[in-house]
């Protein structure tokens, strides 16, 4: 089975592609989908072939033509897309892609929308989880009126990316512009909940069952919040949220839960509709979630796996390699390597 993986960047903002490739390379032939010949995963030797892909903004026809070419040339059987920017296209056209003989394991469009930050309060109610008070705004006037209802500090968040804490109105306005200029509207204003962040990566089968999950706590992060060291945790409430999420929504495929936990409550902060870049942590401690995704695609029966050792530590580090510049030129000019 030949599986394509996207998200091959592995610099200061690592994508999930390389951890996925490490999880699957011993059992499957892998193809790399890249958007830029500077992505390290193009040169790491984890894939048998790499292709430059059209940007998602070019639409489905471009993607379809590229996939048809790749399938004809390399015999592509399945794709695990890993980037937020490309997921809407793959999810919207998953039936068309499957009809091309390419397997996917993705949530429905409805479920994808359900975990949008501006709809998480509704989902949280369904799952009976506490969700921080959140307002959706589109102007500074609305920001001012919301800030009278909520006490500072407040989180100012983009609907898809970025979140900054603001201690006063002046900083809130600055962050409002910073995010809206880069990522557009709506902007979300959210109360700050006290507690500690915990995360969970899981895979659900689309029939209401969570098939595997690993909970972690990030011990240290980079300046942009990416994990540097982490530790496995066993938090029953977090696991139950994941199980309930899979059951209530019928979610299909990978996901990541981000929650805040304090003495009394657990708050749902975000659900990412894909693997996080630290997913190899789960593989290395015995729960190979990317492999589960392939098995779901193949319609295999999978035994749920939630048992993993506690006290296992994850350490991310910098590595380097040297390759021929001709590889870069080939990828850039022919869009293949």
């Amino acid at each position: 089975m030949k599986i394509a993986i996207s998200g091959l960047n592995n610099t200061d903002n690592p994508a999930p592609g390389i951890p996925l490739a490490k999880s699957l390379k011993d059992e499957y032939e892998l193809i790399g989908f890249s958007y830029d010949p500077n992505e390290p995963g193009d040169y790491m030797g984890l894939t048998s072939k790499n292709y430059l892909m059209p940007y998602p903004s070019l639409g489905f026809e471009e993607l379809k033509n590229r996939l048809l070419h790749i399938k004809e040339q390399s015999g592509l059987d399945a794709i695990i897309p890993n980037l937020d920017a490309e997921l809407p296209l793959y999810i919207k056209y998953q039936d068309e892609i499957e009809a091309m003989g390419i397997k996917l394991c993705l949530p429905s469009e409805e479920n994808f929308e359900l975990r949008n930050k501006n709809r998480l309060d509704t989902l949280s109610k369904r799952l009976q989880i506490t969700y921080p008070k959140t307002f959706e705004i589109g102007s500074v006037e609305e920001l001012k009126s919301v800030s009278e209802e909520l006490d500072f500090p407040l989180m100012i968040k983009g609907n898809y990316y970025k979140a900054y804490m603001s201690q006063n109105l002046e900083s809130a306005i600055e962050n409002f512009y910073k995010i809206s200029n880069e990522w557009g509207f709506p902007i979300l204003v959210q109360e700050v909940v006290e507690g500690e962040e915990v995360n969970l990566v899981g895979v659900a089968d689309g029939k209401g069952e969570l098939k595997g999950a690993v909970g972690i706590k990030k011990l240290t992060t980079t300046d942009i919040g990416k994990i540097w060291t982490g530790i496995t945790i066993h938090n029953e409430k977090l696991l139950n949220i994941a199980k309930e999420f899979a059951k209530q929504t019928g979610w299909k495929g990978p996901f990541e839960l981000e929650c805040m936990v304090n003495m009394n409550s657990i708050y749902l902060i975000e659900i990412n509709p894909r693997f996080p870049a630290w997913v190899y942590f789960a593989t290395a401690i015995g729960i190979n979630l990317p492999k589960m995704v392939i098995e779901i695609m193949e319609g295999k029966e999978i035994e749920p796996q939630f048992d993993y050792p506690q006290n296992k530590m994850y350490v991310r580090y910098v590595d380097e390699l040297v390759t021929d510049f001709s590889n870069f030129i080939t990828l850039l000019s022919t869009k293949e390597l």
């Binding site: 915990v198 706590k217 011990l219 496995t232 938090n235 029953e236 506690q310 006290n311």
Partner: peptide, 15 residues
Amino acid sequence: LILDNNVAFHPMMGN
């Protein structure tokens, strides 16, 4: 809490 040498580890929170 799990005690290991002179360190207490909280498995639910990772602290």
